[in-house]
């Protein structure tokens, strides 16, 4: 932490990720924290968009309506193309995940806000939800035959046990990469912005340089926010497809 340096040069890139109780007291399971507030705002913003956007039902959509319709069709086509028509049964769950993540990521870019998805507590739960659901679907649909998913059928016999172990490990690594990819992207982007922001004031006039860099990085972060939500969703669809069709 740069707090200790004597020159008044204080850069605290991780401070923004602190979980603090908004009404005092210690943080326990049911405490209303800043994370809770921003989750509530995410739900509020997403619900408002979809409730108001879907009221009009005009044949020629209004602007708000066409945002909801674009989001709907985008994820609908993504699920259909990636997981097949039988994957559409799970479309509402995937859509909820996508909307929650994309709103968390984008709202987190508002200055002084809190990014819900920058915490591994959140992304790990999201990824585990997908992982457990998909594994249960796989076993429900194929029974114990789902084990064959871990054994490449065109491999020579003596290689199969080794490949089985490798496939099993890679399967269990999925939720790790799935969650860390999203969380780390959010975390790193916001930390970098904070570091650059910390340089602006101490550099006085020269501070224009880190400020200009921040503008560029901010644009990049908007892109990352959307792309990471998309990647999380498409990986969910791919995992779902594996469970439904076993390759």
């Amino acid at each position: 932490m740069a707090e200790a340096s004597g020159s008044g040069f204080s850069i605290d890139p991780m401070g923004q990720f602190n979980i603090v109780s908004l009404f005092g007291g210690d943080v326990d399971t049911f405490t209303f924290t800043n994370s809770t507030l921003w989750m509530a705002l995410v739900v509020l913003a997403a619900s408002s968009l979809f409730i108001f956007g879907s009221q009009g039902r005009a044949l020629v959509p209004t602007r708000l309506q066409s945002v909801t319709e674009l989001a709907y069709e985008f994820i609908h086509n993504l699920v259909k193309d990636t997981a097949g028509t039988d994957g559409l049964k799970y479309f509402p769950y995937i859509f909820t995940l996508f909307i929650f993540i994309v709103f968390s990521n984008v709202l987190g870019l508002i200055p002084y806000s809190f990014t819900v998805t920058s915490h591994f507590a959140v992304t790990v739960v999201l990824a585990l939800m997908v992982f457990i659901t998909v594994t249960v679907i796989g076993f429900l649909k194929h029974g114990l035959g789902f084990i064959n998913f871990f054994i490449p059928h065109d491999a020579p016999g003596w290689l199969k046990p080794i490949l089985f172990v490798i496939e099993l490990i890679s399967y269990f690594v999925r939720p790790v990469s799935h969650s860390v990819r999203l969380g780390a992207n959010m975390l790193a982007g916001h930390a970098v912005l904070k570091v650059f922001a910390g340089f602006v004031y101490p550099m006085s006039v020269g501070g224009i340089l880190p400020l200009a860099a921040m503008v560029g990085i901010y644009g990049l972060e908007v892109l990352v926010a959307l792309v990471q939500a998309f990647i999380f969703t498409i990986l969910t669809c791919i995992y779902l497809n594996d469970a439904l069709h076993m390759h």
Partner: peptide, 12 residues
């Protein structure tokens, strides 16, 4: 800090 986030995430 995980339990509170997990709890409210599931609620949300």
């Amino acid at each position: 800090y995980w339990p509170t986030q997990i709890f409210y995430l599931l609620v949300a």
